[in-house]
């Protein structure tokens, strides 16, 4: 059973979202997703200042045998990306909710977060798969 931290929000496409202060959110992929994809070999990150709508493709995670698009979970602007992933994509496998975070967004409308799933709902999705 994979790890699904209670304090995070989730999407159907296996991103997690951590709501911070001042309308900032941090995004990564879940433990379940990294297990499915296997050893990461390359992460293509979004450009800083890029404006995104919820559901936009914004980066790609690549393992040896698969490549998967990552979607913006909410609308907002990219304000930071995890530069460490360039040299150490394995951080996503080792610590998906910590060192393996992917990018931070500034969001204008915090109510969007309410539309995301909570841990219990995401666990139910995992069960289905």
């Amino acid at each position: 059973m994979s790890n699904v931290p209670q304090e995070l929000k989730y999407t159907r496409s296996h991103e997690w979202v951590l709501a911070g202060d001042d309308g900032q959110v941090t995004v990564g992929i879940t433990d379940h997703a990294q297990e499915l994809l296997g050893d990461m070999v390359f992460i293509e990150l979004p450009e800083i200042d890029h404006e995104l709508s919820a559901g936009d493709e914004c980066s790609v995670v690549e393992s040896v045998k698969a490549a998967s698009d990552i979607y913006a979970p909410v609308a907002g602007t990219i304000i930071a990306v995890n530069e460490n992933l360039a040299d150490a994509p394995e951080l996503i496998n080792e610590d998906p909710y910590g060192e393996g975070w992917m990018f931070r967004m500034q969001i204008s409308d915090a109510s969007q977060l309410d539309e995301l799933m909570d841990a219990a709902a995401y666990e139910a999705i995992e069960e289905e798969e």
């Binding site: 045998k65 698969a66 698009d69």
Partner: peptide, 12 residues
């Protein structure tokens, strides 16, 4: 780097 190729990435 096969993940760039059609048999994995298909339309992308």
């Amino acid at each position: 780097l096969q993940a760039r190729e059609q048999h994995i990435r298909r339309s992308k």
